[in-house]
Design a binder for these strands. Sequence first.
RNA 1: GGGAGCUUAGCUCAGCUGGUUUAGAGCAUCUGCCUUACAAGCAGAGGGUCAUAGGUUCGAAUCCUAUAGCUCCCACCA
Length: 890
Amino acid sequence: MELSAKYNPTEIEGKWYAYWMAHQLFHSEPDEREPYTIVIPPPNVTGVLHMGHMLNNTIQDVLVRRARMQGKNACWVPGTDHASIATEAKVVAKLANEGIHKADLTREQFLEYAWEWTRKHGGIILEQLKKLGASCDWDRMNFTMNEAYSRSVIRVFVDLFNKGKIYRGVRMVNWDPKALTAVSDEEVIHKEELGRLYYIRYKIKQPQNPPAPEGGTPCDYCVVATTRPETIMGDTAVAIHPHDPKNAHLRGKTVIVPLINREVPIIEDEYIDIEFGTGCLKVTPAHDANDYLLGEKHRLEVIDIFNNDGTLNEKAQIYVGQERFAVREQIVKDLEAVGLLEKVESYLHKVGFSERTDVAIEPKLSMQWFVKMGELAEPALAAVMDDEVLLYPAKFKNTYRHWMTTIKDWCISRQLWWGHRIPAWYLPDGRFVVAEDSAEALKLAKAMTKNKSLAITDLQQDNDCLDTWFSSWLWPIAVFDPDVPGSGEEVDPNIDLQYYYPTSDLVTAPEILFFWVARMLMAGYEWAGGYPFKNVYLTGIVRDHLGRKMSKQLGNSPDPIALMDQYGADGVRMGMLLTSPAGNDLPFDEALCEQGRNFCNKIWNAFRLVNGWQADDTKEQPAHSAKAGEWFKHLLRKTVIEMNDDFDKYRLSEALMKIYKLFWNDFCAWYLEIVKPPSGQAIDGTTHATARLFFDYLLRLLHPFMPFISEEIWQHLQPRQPGESLMMQPQPYADCFDEDCLAHFEMIQQAIASVRTIRQTKNIPYREPLELYVKGEADETLFPLLQKMANLSAIRPGGPDGSRNVVSFLIGTTEFFVPLGAMLNVEEERRKLLADLEYQQQFVAAVKQKLCNERFILHAPEQVVAFERKKQADGEARIKAIEEQLAALQ
RNA sequence: GGGAGCUUAGCUCAGCUGGUUUAGAGCAUCUGCCUUACAAGCAGAGGGUCAUAGGUUCGAAUCCUAUAGCUCCCACCA
């Protein structure tokens, strides 16, 4: 078989993915094995793969593949999220491009367009995941708007409502004037903005003949500082602090709102910051959350001057129909014209923006649905604080606690059509019923009104949809059993849910810790009797090399598909994993993918070498090959133990680095080079079998990280049955290794490197054999190996007698000499030895100083003192050796 | 404004309960090699006052305090 000198991933990756699928290797059914479950964080149904997904799903695939190879029944459930705001926004934009406006469509017509869009774009992202190698159980594919899933969402709403945990109320919400919907606090991004602070004069309504304040002049105005002058038409009071001396004269007065000349009272409240601006606050209860609270407290009128789209309505009296920011510009000019603008200052402040549409959020009063969070949050908080559920890295526990203890009620209604419609039906008299469907609603309505003639057409279902997270918080439950919460009448408990729940690991981004992770925990305790996952691995954010978050807007995100085409999926997977410890940001660099690709090529060529060997069973195994095999066996064991430890701590990049070095440095550069037979000769049967065995183990260790190339080579390594796959082979096991064996070998490696250095500095080609003398401790059984790798004609014990033309080096306290004859540069050698001598003398001096310190001898543990003594003795031995060598140079 | 975290080689990071020969890795760099598995390679080498200043200790990259710089999260100062 001819194998190309370059590894070509594109030919191979598609082939093996199809093979795994054809043999149902990703599919899981409950059985007697221990389950290992991951539910995918469902990407937006119409989204495309970005670098964050690449990282996230690579990590999940590594964990799932490894669990599978550990004999667990691994199940990775894929699926998508309907993402109500994001998807609806895309559909609205697409329709607008075609000249169709949402407002002109009926709900049914719009939903038809949305479904069409979903069918067209939905699942693109899943095909991309397949290219990455994701070993999801595609038979378990789910979607948050599937019929069954939707039923579950509705049932949960009804259940919470019946438990009194859902209520309807007028609240100040974050209004997105572009998407025309309320959004949750978590969907508001606060950005710092350089705005302006406008000082506006409100005329004080004076009684006839106003008395002048003591020691001052009569004051016609009170000055109010605001960043939002366009809201003054909604003002219903001006507030001062009760103990503010400079505004005390305003007490009990009324002032006139500029331009519209409405008379409003001065109120007093301790909320006011005396130091800010003039100490006077204009109160606009309809358009500011704080003002709303003030308004409630002081029973102020609420005047809502905005339309839903951010334009002003007739209640504003002026600027009606104009956009809020245009009005801000205009009103400033108009105030100035009538002399009511005192001054304008630059002012740095935070403004809330909608995460989805990036427009400034408008605080707005409206009727919305809320979930009471207090009771739901309790078990979810305890789970994390008591380590029942573990966060990786644990530092997120603090943030989590902070959020969960200051949690506010969750506004779950969205003024959207794409999503789960709120199952509330309004009666003609304004009352409402909550039910799973319209028939049930009618029954309830009849009972409520005691009106038997009530018809379904008399009921009007709520027009709003539920927040996307109100469906995705059920994800780990509903993908296994959409009948939770049940009616309580079920006879057969759901087998899948019993077997797969709770899931093992959840891999997701820290930015949705509260959106999603916390709420899944709440749902788990509320409806599934316990936590939904044991471990939460929080990934970092993928950034470009300038440290910026990768985003579409910046255009700094590489196209994942193009990357995989260029470097292979395995190469990109390795690139993603190389620098991504849990919770750390990932500074992405294509060079990392290149490194991954190069590694694939290395693996490929190692295989080409081993594959090309002709085995001769009659040939005896050379001593160096036997010793190398022994060494590598122990090194392999050590690495397996270390990798297991890394995996236990979710240190995936370190585990990968260990197998990378084991394969490249130890297996290729050392083991294969040692056992490689001279060109054209056959290899002995024992070594041939051992090398293949090692290769097999290495492929198993590599497989979770690089599934494609490992499968390809494993299939070539020996004949396999149809349907056989590396992904189902057990991981290598080890619990101990021989440390001495590794240490002895390492010393020989250093000796070999030292001889090579001598060759390079002295310009002695490798072909020219050298002699070596060894004085001191060394494992002689490794000398044949040393001889082969350093190309030595002989290795002799002791020092070379009387010869001056010798170059030497030290490893530990063992001296090595290489006679060089005329090639030796005595002066250069002396310089080197003198430098070394000085270093050793300083070293010994430092150790001695430590040992002379009585308090050190007294306080330090015996072992540490003994170790320092050995350091001194070794150092002195080395000094003696160097001095002898210097003497020999004379 | 409150909270959390970070600062170790040119870059990205390990370094766990203070001591393991005067700090490790990968990448990058430099030098020499087209040696019949691989130049996407081989061999070798160089590179760090562990952010700064104090303190605790026989002993500090590691523990404590302060300072500086960076990052993230939360929060209604108009």
